[in-house]
Amino acid sequence: MKTWELGDQKGIASLRMAERAEPKPGPGQAVIAVKACSLNRRDIGIAGGTYGAAKPATRIPLSDGAGDVVAIGPDVTGVKVGDRVTASHYTTWLDGTFDPSVRNADLGVSIDGWLTERAVIPAAALVPIPDKMSYAEAAALPVAAVTAWSVIEGLGRIKSGDIVLTLGTGGVSIFALQIAKMNGARAAITSSSDEKLARCKDLGADIVVNYKTRPDWDKAIRDQTGGRGVDIVVETGGFATLSQSLAACAPNARVGMIGALAGRPEAPPALFPMVGNNITLKGITSGTRRMFVELLKAMDATDMKPVIDKTFAFDDAVNAYQYMVDSDFIGKIVVSVG
């Protein structure tokens, strides 16, 4: 079978195609005939050797994917051959609070991922795909959509009528917008492009602000919420935007800082609104398998479809990476396999 490997991690060009024997499942493992994968921002860092310690050159990249179970190892009970599945990328974080050890079994990072014709995945992490959801749609979800769900539901405990703010139009942000809308909330979103904001309006965004023309976008959002501010922030802009996000918050707001996108602040964020407004700020490192199951149930019930910007062929996976670096994409970039 054909597989992609990280190679020496000096950049996208280090990615290399390899030929391997068909994998056999060990105890607790399933072999998946991969149908689709998707990219996340951190995959660029992993390919460039800037995301944690160096990985083995033979590591198979990508945390997101979906396919069919074609073989199961001993002691696998939750899935059977023929099941359509995706997986929680922290394969040992099934439920409960965060434990740093989950990083030791992270698909495409610390264990082999999805960018291969046949993937070996810990069966406990697998999640069945709803019948009406395509493989490409399912493959778009594990990192970005579960992260958005973790902020909005896990931390934010969204209620209908809440206002959710998210920054930019990347994968997490677009999912945040859609998850807010499916929960009966209003969605506010920022971008530097009026064209992208128009697209967000089509997706249901209630409040859109161009942060290029409105550098005081926190005030613009406050004005458009009748002065009240927002209840939940999916903070995809990192520490650089945190001061303004906090300034846009309503009393009792919940702010989720997304780990991989956080970066390091140039200036310390202004925390002053936090005490006076009883704001909660939490670091979010994706979410649990349980959250993923809840998300799929909600998507199935509300017919929510992921926004897929562009799909690349398996042999063109390098171009998918390059497209993520170069283009003004909205939502997710998918690789079709097989």
């Binding site: 997304i258 780990g259 602040p265 936090m274 909660t280």
Partner: peptide, 16 residues
């Protein structure tokens, strides 16, 4: 304050 540890630890900071 350096807040990066909040993200790494999934910690919560609340104004009270």
């Amino acid at each position: 304050p350096q807040l990066f540890g909040l993200v790494a630890k999934n910690a919560v900071l609340g104004g009270i």
